[in-house]
Nucleic acid binder design. Structure first.
Length: 721
DNA sequence: GTAGGGTTAG
């Protein structure tokens, strides 16, 4: 901050000097404006011609007329010049724009602040910030518009410090910011203390009710992870417009609160607003986070209205990839005519995440051939693909040559992928060397990647070293404490186990119980280790036992290595058997015949055993297919899953049969009576189905999501999965 | 009259 202030005062000094030098300039003859008496008979004709060419948007003739005027020392009024500049902007005529600037600075003519503001804005729109800055620097007087234009220009190109510096300078010059200034400067906000100060300032000058200011506030609060404040600003608003709704929906979707984003979307529709591409993009993001493929499909229907919108199509593409619906993703990808680097990167990462590494790498070649330049994120996808398929050599090649071939310096994420690649291949030493080679400091995520490899390859010593590194960087990471404790317990180092437990107690760290849930027929069923609340728990357990014995017959051995040590005897065995996720999987198996998409989620990291179980179940129960893992991925070695981290999703053969427009009700959690009140009719269940169906004018109502998940409470203690 | 808010890939 001190540094910033120094620069600010230096600037102030500079501004003052330039101001004083301007005021002490020798008097120059007042130029002729349109209202001034023409010097010769042709002057008024020239001015009239010039004005008419400007208003007719006839750029070449206007430029010619302007040159003639300049020769005669004749000048038009600011409005005419502003029309001419608009014309230059519309035609992207940079050189002509410069000529207008040169013209109004010729013969000692002194353009008004208004015209200079337009020139600044022109250079900003041509992305010529230096030129804009030069005009600004030479202005004899600057008003709030001049300052706001510069602030907005710097904020938009991500030069937040510069924008904030200008804001401070502006205040020091005694220029009062208005709603335009605040909505621009908010975009440059890079920390919560800045934001709070600005928010106070906004309230102080009574601008808090401006929708532009509000939507910017909502956006910045949510980008800084202050969702509660964002919601507060949103709720306090009396009148909301579409952008305000989009800000809150986008904010929630970006902060992984997809449920609430969809709820707000529903409210927005009820309030009578029609979604635009920004709304739908955020809704899609919410669907992507929740893996709500079917809701996403319904959004697709609406996307067709904006079928040339690249951002929206990219979001849709990502939704299909993340929901494991590769066929839809590929079809869509083909349809996107002007693919940008995001389209390509999304598809490459999507293929890699879904296990099609070779295809991902082929697509990368196609991308290069198409002339699209890969960026930082593209390379992450490529390395991810190599890592997924165990392509150590290819991965190392891409990693080592990325700087030379694409001019991209490897960042943490690239290192992460390659450490993972090496780690999973058992090359722990090389992985460790790479960590040490990193130019940026390895963070907890990097170390956790290595820890994952240590678990898989049972390297206890390195695991202990790495776990300690993680706890130094992230002392609240309950998972690592438990893991460390388990490793010690496994090696009978009971004193160390006690020590870790003591640290956890002292620091007040508790491990949240592992919880899995599954959505079957629009209802969510939650399972927690040791919990018997589910009404069908006995049948599920019986079925699970049968399955496990069947699986043991084909070689399944439950992994006991990293099981909880504070559960004893029978309980411990139970934890092997009745893992929450296994219960959810079995419940899904029992219910999937009804034809619903089954989705299992976890809120915790899980060890390899459960995934092995799931894969084997998938072998004997062919309707169960593992389709996605958005966070990390499975690692297969000799046909066996070695580790798994992230989210499960299973699909039955269910396909959404109805594609109907996304009406306001189709995302709601209406009870049946509410639906009937809305004009829906109850229809006879289909043969073999015990479900009630609702239809509206022959269109079936599909009830996509129920967020009423309540996690049952568990006794205190350390729970691992 | 010139300046302002929300949308995509890791």
């Amino acid at each position: 901050m001190k540094e910033a202030m120094k620069t600010v005062s230096a600037k102030l000094k500079h501004v003052r000097t330039s101001l004083s030098s301007l005021s002490s300039r020798p008097y120059s003859p007042t130029p002729l404006a349109s209202h001034a008496k023409p010097r010769n008979p042709s002057s008024s004709t020239l001015l009239n011609e010039f004005a008419s060419f400007c208003y007719q948007r006839d750029l070449p003739r206007a430029m010619k007329a302007m040159a003639a005027m300049e020769r005669h020392g004749i000048y038009a009024d600011s409005i005419t010049y502003s029309e001419l500049i608009k014309c230059c902007l519309a035609r992207n005529a940079v050189e002509q724009g410069r000529l207008v600037h040169k013209h109004v600075s010729s013969n000692g003519y002194q353009p008004k602040t208004f015209l200079l503001n337009i020139l600044i804005s022109m250079y900003v729109k041509f992305k010529l910030l230096q030129e804009a800055q030069a005009v600004f620097d030479q202005m004899p007087e600057r008003n709030v518009v001049s300052w706001t234009t510069m602030i907005s220009a710097y904020a938009n190109v991500g030069l937040s410090d510069k924008a904030l510096e200008f804001f401070v300078l502006m205040l020091r010059e005694g220029v009062l910011p208005n709603m335009f200034t605040f909505s621009s400067i908010l975009r440059a906000c890079n920390g919560i203390s800045n934001l709070r100060q600005l928010h106070c300032g906004i309230i102080k000058v009574g601008l808090e009710s401006d929708v532009f200011v509000r939507s910017a506030l909502i956006d910045v609060y949510s980008k800084l992870d202050e969702l509660r404040d964002a919601i507060c600003v949103f709720n306090e608003m009396e009148t909301k417009d579409l952008v305000v709704w989009n800000s809150i929906i986008g904010g929630l979707a970006q902060n992984s609160d997809g449920d609430e984003a969809l709820n707000q979307f529903k409210r927005m529709k009820r309030a009578g607003f029609t979604a635009d591409q920004a709304t739908l993009t955020s809704v899609l993001r919410a669907c992507t986070g929740l893996a709500l493929l079917e809701v996403g499909r319904q959004v697709h229907v609406h996307v067709l209205k904006f079928d040339v919108d690249l951002i929206l199509n990219n979001a849709l593409l990502d939704m299909y990839c993340k929901s494991g619906s590769l066929e839809d993703a590929k079809t869509l990808f083909e349809k996107i005519v002007h693919k940008d680097v995001i389209s390509w990167s999304t598809m490459i990462a999507g293929l890699a995440q879904n296990g099609f590494s070779q295809e991902a790498l082929k697509l990368f070649d196609l991308m290069k051939a198409s002339g699209t330049k890969p960026n930082y994120i593209t390379i992450i996808g490529v390395l991810f693909a190599c890592s997924h398929a165990g392509l150590v050599d290819d991965g190392m090649f891409y990693f080592r040559s990325m700087k030379r071939l694409y001019g991209i310096d490897p960042g943490r994420e690239h290192y992460g992928c390659v450490i993972d690649l090496l780690g999973r291949a058992g090359k722990l030493d090389e992985a460790m060397n790479l960590v040490q080679e990193m130019e940026c400091e390895p963070d907890a995520v990097t170390w956790r990647t290595l820890l994952g490899a240590c678990r898989v390859h049972r390297n206890v010593d390195l695991a202990i070293y790495v776990a300690k590194k993680i706890l130094k960087l992230d002392p609240e990471d309950a998972g690592t404490y438990v893991l460390l404790s388990n490793i010690y317990a496994n090696s009978q180092r009971w004193e160390d186990v006690t020590e870790i437990r003591r640290q956890m107690r002292e620091r007040g760290i508790t491990k949240e119980p592992g919880c899995s849930w599954i959505e079957v027929n629009k209802q969510i069923h939650a399972f927690i280790l040791g919990d018997t609340a589910h009404p069908k728990i006995n049948i599920i357990n019986r079925r699970l036992n049968q399955l496990i014995h069947k699986l043991m017959g084909i070689g399944y051995v439950p992994d006991t290595n990293f099981v909880l040590q504070d559960l004893e005897g029978e309980q411990r065995d139970d934890s092997l058997w009745y893992h929450s996720e296994k219960l959810a999987i079995v419940f899904g198996l029992m219910s999937s015949s009804s034809g619903s998409a089954i989705r299992i989620r976890k809120n915790l990291r899980i060890c390899g055993d459960c995934h092995t179980f799931a894969k084997l179940v998938a072998k004997i129960e062919c309707r169960l297919i593992v389709i996605r893992d958005p966070v990390r991925y499975h690692h297969f070695q000799n046909g066996q899953v070695m580790s798994y981290d992230g989210e499960f999703e299973f699909h039955s053969n269910y396909k959404c049969r109805y594609k109907f427009p996304l009406e306001e009700d189709s995302l709601s959690n209406y009870k049946i009576q509410d639906m009937l009140n809305l004009g829906y009719q109850m229809v006879q269940p289909r043969e073999g189905s015990k479900e009630l169906s609702l239809e509206h004018e022959g269109v079936p109502f599909w009830y996509p999501y129920n967020s009423s998940l309540e996690t049952p409470s568990l006794p205190d203690g350390i729970y691992d999965v």
